[in-house]
Each structure stands twice: as structure tokens, then as C-alpha cells.
Design a protein around this nucleic acid. Sequence first.
RNA 1: GCCGGAGUGGCGGAAUGGCAGACGCGCUGGACUCAAAAUCCAGUAUCCGCGAGGGUGUGUGGGUUCGAGUCCCACCUCCGGCACCA
Length: 925
Amino acid sequence: MPSYHPAAIEPRWQNYWVSNKTFRVEADPSKPKYYILDMFPYPSGAGLHVGHPEGYTATDILARYKRMRGHCVLHPMGWDAFGLPAEQYAIETGTHPRETTEKNINNFRRQIQMLGFSYDWDREVDTTDPNYYRWTQFIFLLLHDTWFDAGARKGRPISELPIPSEVAARGEDAIRAYRDGKRLAYQAEVPVNWCSALGTVLANEEVIDGRSERGNHPVVRLPLKQWMLRITDYADRLIEDLMLVDWPESIRDMQRNWIGRSEGAEVDFAAIAPDGTESAVRVFTTRPDTLFGATYMVLAPEHPLVPKLTTKAQAAAVEAYRDQASRKSDFERTEMAKVKTGVWTGSMARNPANGELVPVWIADYVLAGYGTGAIMAVPAHDERDFAFARQFDLPVKVVVEPSQAWLDKTGSSLGNLTAAYTESGQAIASGFLSGLGTAEAKARMTAWLAEQGRGSLKVNYKLRDWLFSRQRYWGEPFPLLHEIDDDGKPTGRIEPVDDSELPLRLPDLADFKPSGRPEPPLGKATEWAAVERGGRRYRRELNTMPQWAGSCWYYLRYLDPKNDKALCGKSAEQYWMPVDLYVGGAEHAVLHLLYSRFWHKVLFDRGHVSTPEPFSRLVNQGMILGEMEYTAFRKDGAWLSAAKVEYDGKAAKDASGAEVESVKVEEDAVEKKGEHFVLKADNAIRIDARAFKMSKSRGNVINPDEVVRQYGADSLRLYEMFMGPLEATKPWSMRGVEGVYRFLTRVWRLVIDDRSEENRTSPQVTGDAPSRETMRQLHRTIQRVTDDLDGMRFNTAISAMMEYVNHLTPLATRPKAALEPFILLLAPFAPHLAEELWRALGHPGTLAYEPWPAFDPAMLVAESIEVPVQVNGKIKARLTVAPNTDGPALEALALADEKVREHLGGKPPRKVVVVPGKLVNIVAG
RNA sequence: GCCGGAGUGGCGGAAUGGCAGACGCGCUGGACUCAAAAUCCAGUAUCCGCGAGGGUGUGUGGGUUCGAGUCCCACCUCCGGCACCA
């Protein structure tokens, strides 16, 4: 075979690896383990895009590298295959989601195998396989069986929940209700997104600006009984244990922000209703130190006390406001944030600190779902309250002394603030707090409130409990039974399905069309849903689990995928866990990773896993954009400079908001002038130059099948790694693929005689000893590639190998001893080519477990090195010296240099800085 | 608005505080060829200069240092996330 022909060699090696099970792995306690995991994909109908192989290639390279370094490597792949698209397709065509899913999985598997990844396919998992979701159901039952012991800060079996005697006294049903109220999985009335036009419930991500993503129909919020998971109980541990993992700080930050822990106090205000009765209105504040500055209160429009506190005179206004607020979507409520709205209820409340009466308002800037749904407003020290007070002319009372600098900067005075002062400072006009600093005043006020029985320390979270049920077909059924009475009504008693009956399989449906009512499709499976046990009648839970469920724990199933006694065996778990490296897209930075961590902690508390955190190290691959695009703009046939155009990638508008035409221009019609690209034909016309996210509608999607067909899998792998740092966002370039392909071709020709008809090594490949310089280059390359792999710097590792090939190419002979270690270095990156060349060099079998080449530091020393000499920081001369020349010798050589003396002009230097082996800098007088 | 990340040739990008632009793409010239492709060789930040050579350069402005792409301060732009969470 004369020339490099990936289409011939790649499938052959892929078959070899699969049929020899080259990458099958079993726990081997004599070796160090390495668990390297990819975020498994949702097998969509569109197939793989080039973003998938980016992370997969990085992990594959490391997996192969670690094997060669003698690690026992677990590197599995599977499918996150429940989800909406297959169900939508079923609704439209009647094809069972099972069929669609199977087809898509087969296509994904084919594409992934075509890229030569070294997965252990014996461990493949599929979340829709009953043998898999049997254990998803098991974990749900475990959550249902667990309560969170706040004292011990851990989850414990519900059987260990202490029952208060007054509850016990009320009998079995009371005990049952008490337990149900404490379980980590519980039911609650929660609003869902109901779209009557589509006749279905939608996920949050399917709702955009209060309308359905498909069809743009209105969506209303409708309360429905839902399963919730008590993730908020684990909020503190989820924050604290971020300290245990080696993750990007940005991701940990995002998780902390998402959880949004804030410490403060709950305070009771006594609100006086129009009928004269008092009711406590509880507020949450992080600034109890400013209580003396509270000049009004605000309740969320939905707050339950609103009707009671509304006076007759205000009733109409309040009712109108509440009605208006209820129809606003969350989006509108926040988008309109610039202008604050609200209505006075007509009532007053007593400030517990000073007994003053303050008006009670309702306003939608207070959220019903956070804290207590009510606040004390301190306009002097809170921006939102300040804006509201301005809007409605409410009093502003300063109780924290601003710094003079702040007053100057904002042009404020104590009697007349122009903005809220939100920083800390000394309390003033605050009774017993006056004179204290903010931190101390907070503590003091909280203690005082507690003494008075009017408040207490409180921690709140932005994180809400996890809405865990979906009104969908294609998801895991809940293994729960609702008891029903003789009239067919639920009694409220819920029985878990016995473990021995798992998996609880999804029933087959003939018709996947939505029922038109906000009820789950499983309601149609009447036979399946009706169950009788011990003379009692039950109806199965009809909701299904969200897509997150299966992906929450899949990393555990890989450890022991065939186990039918446990989700994974103890010894496998103890050997392999935790995951050493987890690679995936940043879009899962919060939800998937938070949910997984939560489940893992529950499994940990209940003794199913032995590590507090599942993923020791996390790396996010960057996004791959489409090819660079140059866009010019035209209006009425005349070019318009991009400087005058607003362009979002789709529509272009000029300054007046009128639509303008956007025209794609070729690269060679464009040149760069200063900061911007302009038309070559007319330099006054600026061009928009950008790379966009790949999307079907844009038509800039790169299909990996096509790349492999043209250049081969090794080139695709190499290019994806060569583009730039793994974490960076970077644009695709077909020419770049061609570049690495040429590199691989050069490697091929280094070894194979491409003029011969047969596949034989080039006559230049000899058994000679390599020259000293070649050995130095080889060892330098080994060192660089090894260091770069350890630091996941794939792009520079490839550069190093290219440099080495550039060194070897012009040589008259290519000693085997210089080639073989290099082939091993290349193997993780371009495994098919490396295997082929390894065999051509006379080695039978696979190189997958050959030891990684070691470098000898003694070989790295060059015979001579060049040391630059600077005068006043500018290079003026170069010295060629022995590598070990010491400082004084370098200094003497530098000062003796003719050019240096010229620049010094006979004057003695003021100072000489010598860095041996690096440079000499002479500071002239 | 807040929290992250990033700004380096025509492009992707490289540089433990010590020779800016490695490597690749593109481009230019040359070799090979009847010719082309492929391949190989040489050049390629920018300005001045025929040249030797010299000046300027890592988003902007300041600073620290013998020396700054790298460290510090202020600002600008782009990307990602969050967004009335009291």
C-alpha cells in the first residue's frame, strides 16, 4: 500500500479492537486505577455533531495514555435516552419511542466507534433499558424512604424518624402523614406550564416568554400535584463539599450562586387588619441591623394575608393589582423591573424595634416563593426599596452612617440620599444599636428579637426543591401505588412497589397523543394503572421522572453494569470511585452536576457509596463554532458599513431600526484595515467578521461522518485537539483539518515506502543509532508530550510532535530507535495510524499496552546554547556558550562583546543582571 | 446591574517575570512536472531603508521591575452565566 489511506486502515483496527476486546477492563488491585468519564449523550436523530468528539477525543487520549502508563483504566460510554424528542416524534408519527431511540442509539454507536474511541463496550448503559431504570426506580424508593436529620446533617431511613408523642397519639394515619411530610421525595401542589393549544404540559425550557416554543401558543401556570425532591436539605453540604473537588472555580461559583445561601433573620411585624385584629407578618431580612430604618412593608401580591389586610377603600385597587400580577409571566415581572409598581393595602403594621406604625404595601418586586414572601423595606439601605420609596414618595430613614467619600461620590447628604447606601457602617438613630458596626449590630438585633420572641436567626436559599415529575410518557415510571377507595377516590395512602417487583416497566401505548387534559399520558394505560394488593385497590402513579433522573447516577452503573442484585457491587464501587476525570459541556454546569451530587450524597448517607463526592476533577470542553463568516450589509442596493448596522447573526437593522439586507462575502473579497475588516473594493465599508454557533437553520453544521470520509478519524481527532485549548470556544476550519492530515501523511511517509506497491518500510528506516542531536530532539519531544498530556494541553503536545517530525523529515536515514518511541507518543492521538506503523515496524499485536516512553534528562543537554545580551532591556548581541556557563563568565563574555561595547560607548555599566542559561541584561549609565 | 472568562500577525493559536508570534492554516517565490495536483525547499508582525541595519509593536491609560503579553490599579470591547432572592 503506497500512500496514507485512512479509509483502509481505520476500520481494520476498529474491528481488531472490538473483536479482541482490547479495551475490556476488570478491576485490578495491583494497578493504580483511573476512571475517566464522558458526559454521555442524548442520542438525537440528528446524529453526532463535531462538538461531541471534542470531549470524547480528549478523554480517549488520556485513557490510552494512562493505560500505557500502567493504569487500570475505566473508560465507558452509554446513552441518556429518555427525553422529549422521541416522544414528540411518536406523537407525530405513531412510531414507538423505543424504536426511534434504538435506531438513534445504533447510529450514535456507529459514529462513535468510527472515531476509534477505546471504550469498554461491555459496560455500555442505556437509561431506557428496564435493567437500568430498575435501579433508577430503586434510588427513587430510597429517596422516598429517607428523611434528613438536620442535627446529624445526614439522610436516614424513615423508620428511624422520631415520631413526636402528640403525633403518635393521633394514630396510624397521623404517623403516616408525619412521615410523608419528612421524606426526601414528597408531593406538593406546584404550578406546571400548561399549554391548552398543544394540549400538553411543557418543560420550563420549552416555554419562552410565556409562550410555547413550538407554535408560540400561550402557556398558563396551573397548580398540579407533583413529586418534589428535598434537595434544599442538602444545600449546605452541596456548598461545603465544593471544597473537596478539583473543578473550575467558575463552575463552583455558579453552583454556589445557584444555591444562593443567605444568612439573616426572620422578624415578625404586627399588622393591624381593618377589623382591628393583629396578625404577625413574618419577613426575612439579611440586614436585621437596619430594622430601625424600616419605613414600610411589602407583601408579595400572592401573600395569604393580603385579603385580610386590605381595607375597603383599597380593595378595588388591590384586587386589580393582584389580578394584573397573576397574569404577568415571570419574564415580564423581571423585565419590567426598571419601574416599580405596587399598591397600599390600607393597613399599617408595627415595627417591633421601635413600635412605629408603617404602611403595608403589596408589590410584585417581592417574590412569593422566596423567604416568607414579605419584606420590611429599608429604603435608605436597599436599592430596590429605595427605588420603590422614590416611586411612591415613602419616607427614607438613614440608620447606617455612610462614609464621607460615599456621600461625596453620590452627591448625597444624610437628610437627602440620592441612592441607597448598601455597604456596612456604624448604626445611627437605631436605639440600642446605635454606635455598633454592621456585623455586631446584626448579631445584637437578632439576639434581641429572639429574647422578645419576635424573630430568630434564619438561613434562606435561592435553590428550590426539585420538581421531579413530568406529565410525559417517555420516562421512568414511579414505582408507587396510590390507594383508592370504593368510589375510586385516592385515600392519600401511598405504597412503594416492592423491590422484588422492579423494574416497573413502561406500559405500551397505542396512541401517544396528548389527552388534552393536564394529565400524564400514562392515564391511558388503564389496565396497567389498576392494581390490587391484599384486597385493596390501587392506582399506579401516572407521572414519569424527568430526563435528569437517569443521568444522575449512570457513572455508578458503569462500574458493574450487569449486576442484578445491586445498582453496583461494593468492591467495584470501592475500587473505581470516585471518577478521576469528568469531561463535558459547560451547559451542565449547574443542573446535572448539582442533581448528581445530591443523589450521590443520599446514596452516601444510606451506605451505597463510599465517597462524599462523585467527580474528583471536572473539565469543561469549549464550544466549537462554525467556520468564520464575513457579512456585508446593503440597503437600497448600496453597501452600508457594519458600523451602522445592528446584526445578531440573523436579522440586520440600521440605526433607524429599518431592516437591511445581509450578504455573505468571500474571504478574499475582504481585508483588514486597522481594527476592522473592510471590503477590498471599498475600504469605507466595514464587514462583520464572526464565527457563529453551529445550527441547522444557519447551515454551518459540520458533519463528522463527512470529515472522516474525507480525511479519516485520526485527522478529525487530531484537528479537534489541535484547534486550541480544550476549554476554549473556537471556530472550525476545514483547512485546519487538512493541515493535520498533511502532518499524518508525513508521519506515514517517514516509515512507509510510498513508492512501493507493497506495504513495506521505507529504505531510509534503518537499525542505525540515531545522532546525538536526534536523540536530544526525541527526548525533548517525549518530555514535552508527557508534560502536556499531564496538563491536558493537547494542542501544544501535537505541536511538539510536529516539530519532531520536521526534524526527522530531512534526515538521510531514520533510525528505528528514533521512530518507535515517537509512534508510541502519537498512539493516543492517532491510534489507527500508530497501530499500523507499529506493525509495519515489525511488532505483532496492539501497542495499546506498550509502556509509555521515558525521557532521560541527560539526553536533553545541548552542546551549546545561545544567550541574548540586552543593553537597557533591548537585545544587542548573542553569545554562543556551553550550556553550563556560569554567571560571572557570562557577564565577562557579554561585556567583552564588540557590539555591546559599542552600545556602552566606553562608559562602565551601572548594573549587570545575569540569568545563567537565559540572558544578560546590562543597564547603561 | 452582578459573577466568571477572554482580548497577541490575514486566521487558529504558542510563550515557569527573561529572545513575543512556537506549531498549523493562508499567502509569496522556487524545485519537480509537457501541465496540473500532490510533494519538497525558502520567505512571511509592522514601519523606514537598495542594503547592513534601525524604529514600533501583545485592547486603552497609568504603575511596579534591570526586564512586563505575563504582576498591580483604572478603563474599553467581546463571550458565558445569573438577574428584583430582601
